[in-house]
């Protein structure tokens, strides 16, 4: 069993180094050449205790794959994941797996799909404790009631024996959150947890999560395609484009002062809920594709209004350009000049 972790408030809970997740694809039905879709390609970052990192980017850029790889619903193709100072890249032994899964959780986008329709709310929420064989039945029941109350399902005993279909969308997502948090995890991946919810319910769930994160001092990876939501939920933002992390920095810094041409375009396209605000968007051509056997060049090259020769020949790497604000773009890479 793991030794007691001595970690203080500033400690790094999760460290990700050069993480890769490739999916094999076949180009044609009879093709024998193996191609790979680079869903996550050489991504590195850290999340400290109590910190929320938002992962943003357009559909297909690799957000969910990153999240699933981190909680080990996918095994990484390459790279290293360190969790509470232990290497969890491979999780070879059952003991390691149990330890890791007890401390990391994932919340999914669709509360209609992610909860087993044949199980009661009690079964669903207490399942992580069963898997970890934690406590007596009575203890589990108490814990379940307690966490249901925390997430605003009240009175909890009125819900324990209900089934998911007897709950509203907002209630279901609260139950999914309760299930993820019942074991006091150190690290949670939340994959678009509010995008299926109604506006008024969405704000309730966002606020609930913000409160829980600060009360329970968890580390959070918050996946969203909505930059305005990311602004409210996170301390740091990381922008992905076709499997690459193209920008990383403090949330307000990235929103107010985006550096990467893609981030600039993305932020400029977000509609503003103010009819008097005259938004100017940066037009970029084309659409997002798939990174199948990508060439060693900037993945934004075809769409970038600032593309230079070097961008077609080499891949820019993520470099710190201003006090922790990182960007992967040759426009900021002074060495190239």
């Amino acid at each position: 069993m793991p030794e007691v972790e001595m970690v203080d408030a500033t400690d790094v809970v999760l460290k990700v180094e050069n993480l890769k997740k490739f999916f094999p694809v076949r180009k044609g039905v009879f093709s024998r050449v193996r191609s790979f879709l680079h869903a996550v390609d050489d991504v590195s970052f850290e999340i400290k205790r109590g910190e929320v990192l938002a992962l943003v980017g357009e559909s297909g850029c690799g957000k969910t794959t990153t999240g699933k790889t981190l909680v080990r619903l996918h095994s990484p193709t390459d790279g290293k994941i360190t969790f509470l100072n232990r290497d969890v890249t491979h999780l070879r032994s059952a003991v390691d797996r149990k330890w890791f899964h007890g401390k990391s959780q994932m919340i999914f986008q669709d509360p209609f799909e992610s909860l087993n329709p044949r199980k009661t709310i009690f079964d669903i929420v207490s399942e992580p404790m069963n898997i970890q064989s934690e406590g007596s039945l009575k203890y589990r029941e108490e814990k379940t009631m307690e966490i249901l109350k925390r997430v605003g399902i009240s009175p909890p005993n009125a819900f324990l024996w209900r089934y998911p279909h007897e709950l509203s969308g907002g209630q279901r997502q609260r139950v999914a959150i309760a299930r993820a948090l019942v074991m006091n995890p150190e690290f949670v991946v939340a994959d678009e947890p509010t995008s299926m919810l109604d506006v008024s319910i969405r704000t309730q769930v966002m606020k609930l999560m913000m409160n829980l994160i600060s009360d329970m001092h968890m580390s959070f990876l918050y996946i969203t395609h909505d930059l305005a939501v990311a602004r409210y939920m996170s301390d740091y933002i990381s922008v992905m484009y076709l499997g690459k992390m193209v920008e990383y920095g403090e949330t307000e810094e990235v929103i107010q002062n985006p550096l990467h041409p893609y981030t600039k375009a993305l932020i400029s396209a977000v509609p503003v809920p103010d009819p008097e605000f005259k938004r100017k968007s940066i037009q970029i051509k084309g659409g997002i594709g798939k990174a199948i056997d990508p060439l060693p060049r900037c993945r934004f090259y075809d769409r970038c209004p600032f593309a230079m020769d070097v961008c077609a020949k080499e891949e820019p790497s993520l470099v710190d350009v201003d006090d922790g604000h990182k960007v992967a773009c040759f426009l900021y890479d002074k060495k190239e000049e």
């Binding site: 509203s168 907002g170 109604d198 506006v199 008024s200 319910i201 969405r202 704000t203 309730q204 966002m206 606020k207 909505d226 930059l227 305005a228 939501v229 602004r231 409210y232 307000e252 929103i255 932020i267 977000v270 503003v272 809920p273 103010d274 605000f277 938004r279």
Partner: peptide
Amino acid sequence: SFPSIKGEKKELVTIPGEP
């Protein structure tokens, strides 16, 4: 209750209950 990417970051208001 609507988050915005522009302007000052105001506290979000929640409407209690459900439709």
